[in-house]
């Protein structure tokens, strides 16, 4: 029988809790082994970034919905970090199998990759628990604060074009995402493709420019990325 919106939301929360209740707040032994295999060990960069972005998240969350909700924001972020490590490990296992590579130094030292992956994980958590908050400013005025996508991009200072790159791999790496969550991520993709990636400060324009310059020089090797 078709589900009510409330039942659907409850299922999504239960599914996320099932995945994350036993997940690590810190990199697992498997993940640490991948870090150790890197030419440059990325551990400090990763943990420092998680700490820094956590501060930014809590500040922006409190600013958006009020200081009284800071603890809720902290819990959301903590769950996002667990999902981030879990998906990172799953992605690395897939890449290891696909490429027969064990040293992921370049990827794991890429700040943009980590920022985008963490933003994606936090977006999943935020969407699961709902992102519209009604706050009362005075007894007569009530306003809604929208923390839905692309709010997280502003908080983490991530370009939509870079965030877009992790979405499909994220979905492949976490098979326990509900249908509703996958549809939400797909809507994020469409919004990026149709609008946000074309905003003035997008890296997409530099890439298009570089592609055009390479096409104008026929002796240049064909770029590996398209």
């Amino acid at each position: 029988p078709p589900q009510t919106p409330v039942r659907t939301a409850m299922n999504t929360i239960q599914q996320l809790q099932m995945i994350l209740n036993t997940a690590d707040d810190k990199p697992s032994n498997t993940l640490e082994a991948y870090f150790h295999n890197c030419t440059v060990n990325p551990t400090n960069g990763i943990t420092n970034r998680v700490e820094y972005l956590g501060q930014r998240f809590r500040e922006n969350f409190a600013q958006a919905v009020g200081e009284g909700w800071v603890e809720i924001g902290s819990q959301r972020y903590k769950l996002g970090v667990r999902l981030y490590y879990r998906v990172m490990e799953s992605m690395l296992k897939s890449e290891e199998e696909r490429l027969s590579v064990h040293n992921f130094s370049k990827l794991l030292n890429d700040a943009t990759f980590h920022g985008s992956l963490l933003a994606c994980a936090v977006e999943v958590v935020m969407t699961t628990y709902g992102t519209t908050w009604s706050i009362t400013l005075t007894s007569d005025i009530q306003t809604e604060t929208d923390l839905s996508f692309p709010w997280i991009l502003r908080v983490f200072d991530i370009k939509a074009y870079e965030f877009y790159k992790v979405i499909e791999s994220f979905i492949k790496a976490e098979p326990n995402l509900t249908r509703e969550m996958i549809k939400h991520m797909e809507r994020c993709e469409h919004r990026i493709m149709e609008c946000i990636a074309w905003q003035t400060d997008s890296p997409l324009f530099d890439i298009l420019r570089q592609q055009r310059e390479q096409e104008d020089q026929p002796d240049q090797p064909e770029p590996t990325s398209t």
Partner: peptide, 21 residues
Amino acid sequence: FQDYHFGLDEGEGISELFDCD
């Protein structure tokens, strides 16, 4: 996954997307 459109080809993954291949 049935409703999601997977755009990456067989030989493509996160490493290629971040120029780490």
